[in-house]
Computed example of a mutant assay.
Amino acid sequence: MRVFVTGATGVLGTRLVERLADRGHDVYGLVRDDEGADRVESRGGIPRRGDVLDRRSLERAVPNVEVLVHAATSIPTATRPSEADWERNDRVRVDGIRNLVGVAGEGVDRVLFPSVVWVARQPDGSPFDESAKRSPDRTTRSAAAVEDFLRERRSAFGFEAAILRCGFFYAPDSAHTRQFGRSVLAGRLPILGRGLLGREDARLSFLHAEDAAHAFAEAIETEVGGLYHVVDDRPTTFAEFLTELADELGAPPPRRLPAWLARPVLGGETTALLTEPMPTTNDRFRDATGWEPAYPTYRDGLRQVVERWAEDGTLRETPEGYRWNEGRTAATA
């Protein structure tokens, strides 16, 4: 197949370009500079210059393809994101999909979008599936808007839409995962919990970025449409995730901190992401495609993350244990 991927140099996009190219597909990756072009080419893709926020550039960049994947985001990585940070992400997601479909929507068979499962987290914290009513907040508003746009426009343009709501991404080159690792080693990242003393933990749904790319490749090849949740096999708490990361790094167990104390520092959005439940399953997607995660639990995935950091020099081994190499930039696993 011929596939066009926005966000082709990101955590998901880079892996998807490589996976599809390895399977023999013609993969075009949207890039903005020479560094991005080199990255796409090194993964077997064909770079195309443009910007999702510049419709005229997309008219030149998007070739005749069968599948569009809108994986471009600008998710904030600041400890306390500003409104401007979130607005930038909104534009990349929402204006980006409008420009992309406006330029190429009539000529493609399918459009795929990586949404997030916590757009449908339930106010009472109960498990939910694809049929659950959404409850978007500031962090998920744009994901919900893209979901709505694709549902509204698929009939008018004649394409099938596949919305894959993913769990909380982690990977060796993910900015948030790297922030977690650096802070855990430094003893600066606490376990956030609800309640007066911070002892109440919420179950979250995670997903290794390699498994996300695998899921999109399977969705493309099996030609599924509709809405699916793509997460690993077992929801876990932030406490378990962070404690396991500390164990893998040989760092002391993180201390606990009530979410209400962290909120003034982290902001409401980040605090809610880590402390409000979002337990769901991959059952529907697995049944539809046969996909299975290579990292079925956070333990499997975090082991790979730390091994990769040790291999690429992100971690420096000393007699006292691992130290974070501040001069090392992220390398895709």
Rank of each mutant, 00 (worst) to 15 (best):
L192R: 07
C166F: 15
G181H: 02
F168H: 14
S142F: 12
R151M: 11
W118S: 06
R188C: 05
D129R: 01
D148R: 12
E160P: 00
P114Y: 12
W118N: 14
D148H: 13
A175V: 07
S126K: 09
G187R: 02
V111K: 04
W118V: 10
F113P: 03
G125E: 14
H176M: 05
V117Q: 04
H176R: 11
S142W: 04
G125I: 08
P136K: 04
R194T: 00
R138M: 08
L164G: 08
F157P: 02
V111Q: 07
D148F: 03
L185G: 05
D109V: 07
V111C: 06
D173P: 01
G158E: 13
V146H: 05
F128R: 03
H176S: 14
T177K: 08
S131N: 13
C166D: 05
S183G: 11
S174D: 15
V117M: 01
G167E: 05
P127M: 02
R134T: 11
S131V: 14
V108S: 11
G167C: 10
D148L: 07
L150I: 01
R151T: 06
V184K: 00
S142D: 14
E106R: 15
Q179N: 12
P123G: 06
R178W: 07
D137Q: 13
F157Q: 05
S155P: 02
P114W: 08
D173Q: 06
F149Q: 00
R194P: 00
G107E: 09
P172V: 09
P127I: 04
G181V: 01
D173T: 00
P136S: 01
G167V: 07
A175H: 10
P190H: 00
V184M: 05
V146Q: 07
A132Q: 11
P190C: 00
V117H: 03
A186T: 04
L150K: 10
R182M: 13
L189M: 09
P114E: 09
F180L: 15
A186Y: 02
D173F: 06
G193N: 03
R134V: 03
A156T: 01
P114A: 12
P123H: 10
A175S: 14
A161K: 01
S183D: 15
L192Y: 11
P190E: 03
S131I: 08
A144T: 12
R110S: 10
A161I: 02
T140Q: 06
F128N: 08
P136F: 03
K133R: 15
L164W: 06
S174G: 09
A120H: 02
P136W: 05
D173H: 14
D137T: 14
